[in-house]
Amino acid sequence: MATTQARLTTATVKADMLRPPRSLWTDAWYQFRRHRLAMAGLAVLSFLIVATVVGPYFWPIRIDTLDYTIALQGPSADHPFGTDNLGRDIFARALWGGRVSIAVGLSAVFIAITLGTLVGALAGYFNKLDNPLMRLTDLFLSLPILPLLLIVIYLFRDVLRAAFGPEVGIFIMIVTVIGLLEWMPVARLVRAQFLSLKQKEFVEAARAIGDPDLAIIWRHILPNTLSPVLVAATIGVGGAILTESTLSFLGLGFPPDVPTWGRLLYDAQNFIDIATHWVVFPGFLIFVTVLSINYIGDGLRDALDPRKT
């Protein structure tokens, strides 16, 4: 009896040892899957991305087909989102616009996060760099955005247009500009995390066994700062989508015939009381996208938080 039990215990232990080691990311994924809202957000966002990337190839109506006879019609089988004042199909335009808007949102935030994390990590870890980098951050924070945008656009629009064409050129410009204007809060968050984490015992232990600075930053501290960064990032995506629409509003964004979600909203604003569908659908898409990204961020934060297992 006793021997049988002893054998069983050994077997369990052996099985445990045979399982592949759990990494940070598999752990996080395990946690993430249990977060229902986050999974829903991921599903919705994936669906939107797939739909906007693939959709325009399957939807038979082009974004610039004009048909005045059906102008300002509400949703119907032929036009699920209705039509605008020139009889263009809003569904086709929303699909196409989603590509641009989601791409702008994600790329701009990627730039902001990368830059912000880099500056924040260097400032927080290396004392000597802290002061200059943080003053640089202050400098960027105090830049008046609109005049800066005007200058950037005057300086680079024609150059980028000539090099990449009107749409790609403007895309690069907008993504860069938004990215460059959004990295400062991230840098401050990351720096604050680094300042507190680099005093912790596990960092001292890592240093004691001779890990180089970069390895300490990359492997030990950075993963622990991910949660605030991800929250900032998710908020940033929504902000970037909206900033793009502000730029379109000022005439500084994409050419007026590129239907981003922000542009669709801008075009529709005067018709809000006679063609509500025109405002509602793009507005709803922006809302759903930002919401699902926020839930994903929420889920990631919980999943990556070492104290919550």
């Binding site: 610039d64 004042n85 020139l86 509003f249 005439g251 007026p256 015939d257 075009d267 604003q269 005067n270």
Partner: peptide, 11 residues
Amino acid sequence: VNSVRQSTQAI
């Protein structure tokens, strides 16, 4: 930048 003009441009 003007919604009527942008619609004219589209036409």
